[in-house]
């Protein structure tokens, strides 16, 4: 499907979605609680068939956090970027997509470790890189490392 067709079909599914087409891929920006229904549709519907989650990450925009999911369909060879906006910075949480793409398990562990987003229904949410008692989440913009030596 072309970006236009994708946009049309997704608008039917989820009218609240907004779009950004400035970059290489079609970006869909959705609120975080709409994530799982949309993702399930994107994975299971034959005309989408996004079976390959090739990049999962997060961006800290200071006033909100943005989960970014890069999806690719191995069958139709189309790409899409789903961005889920998390407004609650103090206690961010979002549904895990591990039930749809298994690669999400470790990737979400990483995001939890570095951004502090809690993934609901994640099978084994743990700090992947840092120690359990590490304070703060290093990739957040407001993170200050007290032990850092200024050069």
């Amino acid at each position: 499907m072309t970006n236009e067709e994708l946009k049309y079909s997704i608008t039917e599914l989820l009218p609240v979605a907004t779009y950004d087409e400035s970059g290489e891929f079609l970006n869909i920006i959705i609120p975080s609680d709409e994530l799982i229904p949309l993702m399930k549709e994107l994975r299971s519907k034959k005309e989408f068939d996004f079976d390959y989650l090739f990049c999962l990450t997060c961006i800290d925009w200071k006033d909100h956090l943005m989960m970014v999911y890069h999806l690719l369909s191995k069958v139709h060879k189309h790409c899409i970027v789903v961005k889920a906006k998390i407004t609650d910075i103090q206690n961010p949480k979002i549904e895990s997509v591990n039930c749809i793409w298994k690669t999400a398990e470790l990737n979400e562990d990483e995001v939890y470790d570095l951004f502090g987003i809690r993934f609901l229904n994640h099978p084994n949410l743990r700090r992947l890189f840092l120690e359990e008692d590490w304070k703060g989440f290093p990739l957040r913009k407001n993170y200050v490392d007290e032990n850092m030596i200024k050069l």
């Binding site: 961006i59 398990e105 990737n107």
Partner: peptide
């Protein structure tokens, strides 16, 4: 597949830089 994801805010340094590393997924 190595993916480099750069988010720019127009400055001289990346606002956010993510490396999608092949080994990480293969490990999983």
């Amino acid at each position: 597949e190595l993916g480099v994801y750069i988010v720019s805010d127009g400055g001289a340094t990346p606002y956010r830089c993510k490396f999608r590393s092949p080994n990480f997924s293969n490990l999983s």
